[in-house]
């Protein structure tokens, strides 16, 4: 009797899946999946999900899905990507968090006929050697670090802030090649004045990150610039510098300059309050919308972009932060003020 009940239940589940799948297929012509490392633990996720919702409004025959990991784990990310590929979508958008780890998985998907667009993090290898995705949509992590560094040097040259002597690049995720590229860009900018840039893995836990930065800064007294490669870690960097009596802030007389990334409320308000020198935008909204558009055009019309689509960097400092605040407030709504943890 138990066996019959179980078999009946299995048939019902199977029927539900089949009919559900059919009605799903009938409702949408295409299904695109964005597999992301920007999870619900990252406020930037909102840019991507909102822009994908806008895309769906414009193309009602497309269903978009956003799946992400919350852990800084490459293994879990690859697992999630494999699961997404197994559902046989009409296109995938994915950040190349690790070329070596993702190459076999994505090459397999492409061989199955699933078009892939890289977003947010590209495969840094040259054309021909990189993963054969359609195109890359996103900022250039290296350029972000480089331009932020160059802009800081311009301001230092003009006497508005102190000259960099030594720079700390604080990284919270040791496996994220994009973050390392940001630091490399900063290092290359600083090379022009022979200022050393040290990469420091601070971990993602706030208390531990502060402790690590404090240990480092206590020893390395010549460090007068901190580049926090996640905007949420910039208040930690500022706090540690302040506690150590390094006089952080934005001015010629300030001892430590804090630089960060992304157009998040905490970065923008940090600039407004004179605690952060500059941040950048990598066009997050476009990074959600454009990959979907490209996948749609590829599926529908065979479009294959002949070059990457760079959505940044745009440097934001005290001179243009006023223009960015209303734009970001429009996306975050009432959440904007809550996210300012300064």
């Amino acid at each position: 009797m138990r066996g019959i009940t179980l078999r009946f239940a299995a048939i019902v589940v199977l029927l539900l899946l089949v009919t559900g799948g059919n009605s799903y297929a009938a409702a949408y012509k295409y299904r695109f999946v964005m597999v992301s490392h920007i999870g619900s633990n990252d406020p930037n996720m909102k840019w991507l999900t909102l822009s994908m919702a806008e895309f769906e409004k414009r193309y009602p025959d497309v269903k978009t899905e956003y799946v992400s990991t919350n852990e800084y784990s490459l293994q879990k990310f690859v697992e999630l990507l494999r699961q997404a590929i197994a559902t046989k979508p009409n296109g995938i958008a994915v950040p190349i968090v690790s070329s070596d780890a993702l190459a076999p998985v994505l090459k397999g998907a492409i061989a199955q006929g699933i078009p892939v667009v890289a977003f947010n993090i590209p495969d840094p290898r040259p054309q021909g050697k990189r993963i054969p995705y359609l195109t890359y949509v996103g900022g250039d992590e290296y350029l972000a670090g480089l331009r932020l560094g160059q802009h800081a040097l311009e301001l230092a040259k003009a006497g508005k802030i102190p000259n960099p002597q030594r720079v700390l690049c604080a990284i919270h995720d040791a496996a994220h090649q994009g973050l390392k590229l940001r630091c490399k860009g900063m290092a290359d900018a600083m090379k022009t004045i022979n200022a050393q840039v040290d990469n420091l893995f601070i971990t993602a836990d706030p208390a531990r990150a502060r402790s690590i930065m404090q240990s480092y800064l206590t020893k390395n007294k010549s460090v007068n610039y901190i580049f926090a490669v996640a905007s949420w870690s910039s208040p930690w960097a500022y706090g540690v510098a302040k506690e150590l009596g390094r006089n952080p802030g934005v001015g010629a007389s300030n001892g430590t300059i804090v630089i960060t990334v992304d157009e998040s409320p905490v970065a923008l308000e940090g600039i407004k309050q004179g605690k952060v020198l500059e941040t950048h935008s990598q066009g997050f909204w476009l990074q959600g919308y454009a990959p979907m558009e490209i996948l749609y055009w590829y599926n529908n019309l065979g479009l294959w972009p002949q070059a990457d689509f760079l959505t940044g960097p745009v440097i934001i400092d005290s001179t243009n932060v006023g223009r960015w605040v209303p734009f970001v407030r429009n996306v975050f709504g009432t959440e904007y003020d809550k996210q300012v943890t300064w």
Binding site: A204, D205, P206, R208, W236
Partner: peptide, 17 residues
């Protein structure tokens, strides 16, 4: 205690502790 000391925090609070 952590928050009382340093209220600037993040959702990663306590990871791997």
């Amino acid at each position: 205690v952590t928050i009382a000391q340093n209220p600037q925090t993040h959702v990663t609070l306590g990871m791997q502790l």
